[in-house]
Design a protein around this nucleic acid. Structure first.
Ligand code: MN
Ligand code: MN
Ligand code: MN
Ligand code: MN
Lengths: 219, 219
DNA sequence: ATTAATTTTTAAGTTAACTTAAAAAGTTTT
DNA sequence: AAAACTTTTTAAGTTAACTTAAAAATTAAT
C-alpha cells in the first residue's frame, strides 16, 4: 500500500476516533492538504480495495481491514515518537514530523523491536495510546479537556492533541508536558479562559489551547 | 526529490565509487530493478536538474550537486545501519533492508542526532565509511578482497560488500563479521578458493564470497 | 418552500514513474 | 568490413496521485 493510501486511511481513523467530527471527503482532504476531488477519487478506489465503505455524499467508514491498517500505522507513528523522544533531545513537534514519515517505512519487525526496547509503552509523548501488535488498545482514557476542568482541583496532563509547532513550543516553555501536575485556580466562563498554576507559575490560557490539553484529576 | 530520484542517484554513486564498473543506464536499471528505458528517461530528466551529465550512449556521470545528494543519502543509510545494529538484535540483512527505506525519510537534523548519539562513527556494520555532515569521507580504505590475500598472513575483516541474505547468514554463522580476525592458510589459485581459519575453525571459500569480503593485514 | 450558500461529485487534464516493443546505435565475432 | 549480437534509445501507452473547473446534490437561511 502506498504512502498516500496509508495517510488517507489514517486520517479517517484519527478523525472519527478522536473528535468524531464529520468524515466526508472534504474534511479528510483538508487534513491531508489535497483537493476534495482527489479525496473522493481516493475514497472510491479504497472502497474497491475493501478498506472503507463509500456511498455518495455519505460519511466515509473504514472496514475492519481498513481500521486494522490504520491502527498499524498509528502504532508505528506513536512508537517512533516514543522512541525518538527517549533517545534524542528533540522538540515534540520535530519528533512528530519525523514520525509522520518514518511510520510508512517501518516493518512490523522493526516496530516490534522498538516496542520491546521501550518496554512496550502504552502511551506516546503526547499521551496518545499506543496500540499493541494485535491492534488492541487496552488503556481507557478518562481524561477531560482543560476547558472543562473544575476550579481548585489538581490534575495531571494526559494528552496534548495538536501538531502545531507554536503550540508545542509554548507548552514546552510553560512546562505543560505529558505527566506534569497542574492546579486550576479559576475558570473564566464568559471569556472562556482558564487560570492555572504549574510549578509555582500562574498562567492564563484561552480556549484555543485549553481544548487541546487533556487532563486527569488527582484524587 | 523523490525516492525514485534518490535511489537512482545513489545507485550511480555506489556503482562507480565501489566497483568502478560501467555506469550506463542499462546497468543502473538492473540494480534498481527497472527497465533500461525507464533508466534512460530518468537520466535525461536528472540531467535537466543538473544532477548528472548525460550524453547518448555514454556513461552517466554525477555532477557535484548529484554527488552531494548521493552522499547525503549514503550517509543516512549507513547511520541507520550503525544505529539499528547497535540498538537492536537484527540481522545485517534485515538492517540493510530497513535502512534502504529509512534513508529517504530522514531529516538532516535526525541524521545528525543519530550520528551524535553513536559518537560520530566512521564505519557502518558492513565496514563501509560513513560520510560526515559535510559529505566528506576522511578515512582511507587500504583493504583488499580476501581473494587477493596472501597465504599465512593474518587479517582483520574490514568490509562485507553484499546485500544478499544468504551471504550474511553464512557470514554470521561462520563468525565472518566486521572487525573479526582471520588467518589465510592457503590460496588455491587454480580453483580460485581460499582456505582460512576463524576462531579455530577452518573454512574453504570460493571466489563468489572472497571477492565480497575485504580485509586489512595485521602487521 | 424557495432561494442561497456550501459541499461533493464528475469531468478533463497533468505529472512522475514506470512498462513493452520497435528502431537505432554501438560492440563483437567471423 | 560485413554480419551478428547486444545495448541503448525512442515511441507509445499505463497507472497512481494529484489538479482545476463545472455540474449536481446537500445543507442552511430566509
Ligand atoms: Mn504519514
Ligand atoms: Mn503522538
Ligand atoms: Mn533506498
Ligand atoms: Mn552498509
Amino acid at each position: 500500500m502506498s504512502i498516500a493510501i496509508e495517510n488517507f486511511v489514517k486520517a479517517i481513523y484519527n478523525n472519527n476516533s478522536h473528535d468524531a467530527r464529520d468524515t466526508k471527503p472534504g474534511n479528510i482532504a483538508k487534513k491531508l492538504g489535497i483537493s476534495s476531488a482527489a479525496a473522493t477519487d481516493m475514497a472510491k478506489k479504497l472502497a474497491t480495495k475493501d478498506l472503507l465503505h463509500y456511498e455518495k455524499y455519505q460519511e466515509l467508514q473504514l472496514t475492519d481491514k481498513g481500521r486494522k491498517m490504520a491502527i498499524n500505522i498509528v502504532r508505528k507513528h506513536r512508537l517512533w515518537e516514543a522512541f525518538l523522544f527517549k533517545m534524542f533531545d528533540m522538540s515534540l513537534h520535530d519528533i512528530h514530523k519525523e514520525a509522520e514519515l518514518l511510520e510508512h517505512q517501518t516493518s512490523d519487525l522493526l516496530a516490534e523491536k522498538i516496542s520491546e526496547y521501550l518496554g512496550h509503552p502504552k502511551f506516546d509523548p503526547h499521551g496518545d495510546p499506543i496500540p499493541n501488535a494485535n491492534g488492541e488498545i487496552t488503556t481507557t482514557d478518562t481524561s477531560i479537556p482543560l476547558s472543562n476542568a473544575e476550579e481548585n482541583k489538581t490534575y495531571i496532563i494526559s494528552r496534548l492533541t495538536s501538531d502545531d509547532k507554536e503550540f508545542f513550543e509554548f507548552c514546552a516553555k510553560q512546562k505543560l508536558k505529558y505527566g506534569h501536575e497542574i492546579k486550576v485556580s479559576k475558570q473564566f466562563k464568559n471569556n472562556k479562559m482558564t487560570e492555572l498554576s504549574v510549578e509555582n507559575n500562574t498562567i492564563l490560557l484561552n480556549e484555543d489551547f485549553t481544548t487541546l490539553i487533556y487532563v486527569n484529576e488527582i484524587n
